[in-house]
Design a protein around this nucleic acid. Sequence first.
RNA 1: GGCCCCAUCGUCUAGCGGUUAGGACAUCGGCCUCUCACGCCGGUAACGCGGGUUCGAUUCCCGCUGGGGUCGCCA
Length: 479
Amino acid sequence: MSTPRVRFAPSPTGYLHIGGVRTALFNWLWARKTGGAFILRIEDTDQERSTDASRAIIFESLKWLGLDWDEGPDVGGPHGPYTQMERLSVYKDAADRLVAEKKAYRCYCTKAELDAAREALKKANPKAQFRYPGTCRDRTDEPDLPYVVRFKTDTTGSVTYVDKVFGEVTTPSREQQDFVLLRSDGVPLYNFGAVVDDAGMGVTLVARGRDHMVNTPPQIMLYQALGAALPEFAHLPMMLAPNGEKLSKRHGAVSVTEYRDQGYAPTGVLNYLARFGWSHGDQEVFTLAELTAAFSWDACGRGDGKFDAKKFLAINHEHLKSPERVADDDYVARVIPFMEQRGLTGVTADAVKRALYTIRDRAQTFVQAADMLDYFFRDEPVLDEKAAAKHLTGEAAARLDGLRAALEGAEWTEAALEASMQAHLEQTGLAIKDVAQAARVALTGRTASPGLFQVMFVLGRDRSLERLRRGAERARASA
RNA sequence: GGCCCCAUCGUCUAGCGGUUAGGACAUCGGCCUCUCACGCCGGUAACGCGGGUUCGAUUCCCGCUGGGGUCGCCA
């Protein structure tokens, strides 16, 4: 078998949906695993809805995710162009050929007529299925009127294909009708454009969402009429909302850029999506390399699934926790923009990198990470008033002074700080609980933080002592 | 409604005739502990129903029920 050629063919009509990303991912994984080609094709033939902005979002999203393509609108390739509106002549030629071979015909019925007929039928018999009656099928004249090109569909027999995920699928052809290939303005409809391009671009495997399964039989007829080699097909089960409905913005974030903006890691997103409808034994967490090595169509499930935001977050957390999955430098580069968003300017990568170990296990997203890193990068921590009221009390003032005095001469390492604190507690007879929270609030402005010695170590001697001093001051003032 | 597809814990899933039905997320206990996390230990929790086939069905077949997809000069 020749090397696989797969494609992702989104239409630029909005954000890049998380379900679309999964389709892109599975195709990409297959291409990378097999050494095949991953093609990006923009299907912008819906001129009403297609926009340049959406097109840009598709590129941006895929790049952010790290799903690179070998052939596509921007990088070109041997079968370009890769944007359908730039390929109109290709479709016209193909349609002309089919008409010449009597496999398709010009239809002069207007949209209004057809809509009326559809309505009439619906009124007469709500259960009936409208199909184009074939009015122009055997027409021989060529009036000077607008026309669409329709496929002369063979509605006898049935179409069978072997899906790589679902197995053998057979559909009776009586379900089909003479569908439209080209609109009256020469722009192809989905089935025609997709088939002409997939055939022309040498696509060997078409993998897409299950919502396209119904398109496969007519597309197979088209391949045959065109005399083109049939690709393999693989359909992926649907990703539904928690309530079983089609997943849409009503159910929360569905566009990949939203997750990016919420501080998800690309590999976290990809990992969750990969495990949705695909599995590899008991393994839940994967690097991209592991996914690529392990992926296979046999391991894809067939049942639709429901999107689970909590598990998505948990998987992302696994990635943020592990330097194996998100390297320090990568983590730092990704978290800094979120720190800037909250007004932390002039933050250096080195400084963030030094503080990183204190929050690695804690942050589930880069947004959380930016928050947890906050007090390290301000002259003074933002003081949570409730925390201050509770912990910076008159009693705390003396304890903070005592602690500061005890630590002043300490070597500034975590171990030495802990030892000094320990000695201080023994001397004074205080328990660590008696001073820890006050110190924490003084140092970080909040009641929850990494361990005190880690915080002080990262903060450094001067800033730590100064914050303890100010904390005591504040405590005295409130007494 | 026609056609197509699907069916294991709440959710994502493992299972490919014989298992105490496994894992993960979530959830509930507990441990650890300077807080919050992390980590660790443990619990609750699933084969939709009815027929077959078989010595034996979660697993194979059929029906039912339930869910989803799709019926455009959208993709």
